[in-house]
Design a binder for these strands. Structure first.
Lengths: 124, 124
DNA sequence: CAGAATCCGATCTGATACTG
DNA sequence: CAGTATCAGATCGGATTCTG
């Protein structure tokens, strides 16, 4: 149970390391959700929506391992665990925002190209 | 045979659309390889290295569908197909570069965090 | 040359049920 | 509350083989 560290095959490519992290389905949403301050597990899960507990846990563990966030367990009953972005994690927000901006400005083009491509394929 | 368009479940989130594309293993490398001008299939494949023909084809088709590149078939024998970035595809280079820069400056931190995390886990 | 077809194992994601 | 365990389904990436 200690063998799924999810490394890419090429540790010497920085871009791949980062893309392997933010390329997954949830990491970017986690960063967005934690942008305004720490949240506990259930809050985080509710704010993101549609994510299974197991999958969120995996995402958070991977992010913790990469130093993007901290996981703080409060010794109390019922248990309380806070997740908070590190400076490193927060700094990733910049590049992501750049990407998001690009995505928003060009989404129409992409969707248009997609529709055109699919149409010409369906015509045959 | 006409059903694997690889859409995400949420077409209204621009960021996901883009991340689904560049998050895969090869798209970013294709953009990098085509940055200096068009290439044909085999050149492209050689320049990237380590990619199976099928997978490269899939990647190129998806990028073509999203309007990131054009595929030009020259009617000649032996066949010749050129792939070239569109303006849209080339413009994606900017955000990717931002991400790459971030990755390069912070890789050491990430790898360090990773090593520390793994050490403390192994200690147990 | 530029792929398409086929097959395969590995990985991802999620639903469900259970627990300290 | 904050997970873990387990299982199933889907998708992915890749090797191999074949073709216009």
């Amino acid at each position: 149970m200690r063998d799924d560290r999810g490394d890419a095959f090429d540790p010497e490519c920085p871009t791949r390391v980062v893309l392997d992290r933010i390329g997954d389905k949830w990491t970017v949403l986690v960063i967005g959700a934690l942008r305004d301050g720490p949240l506990r597990f259930t809050e985080l899960r509710a704010r993101i929506g549609g994510v299974a507990a197991k999958v969120l846990t995996q995402t958070l563990r991977a992010m913790e391992r990469d130093g993007l966030l901290t996981r703080t367990v409060h010794a109390q009953v019922p248990p309380r665990v806070d997740y908070e972005l590190t400076d490193l994690g927060a700094s990733l927000g910049g590049p992501i925002q750049t990407l998001t901006d690009w995505a928003e400005t060009h989404l129409t083009q992409i969707l248009g190209a997609r529709a055109a491509y699919d149409d010409s394929a369906d015509a045959r």
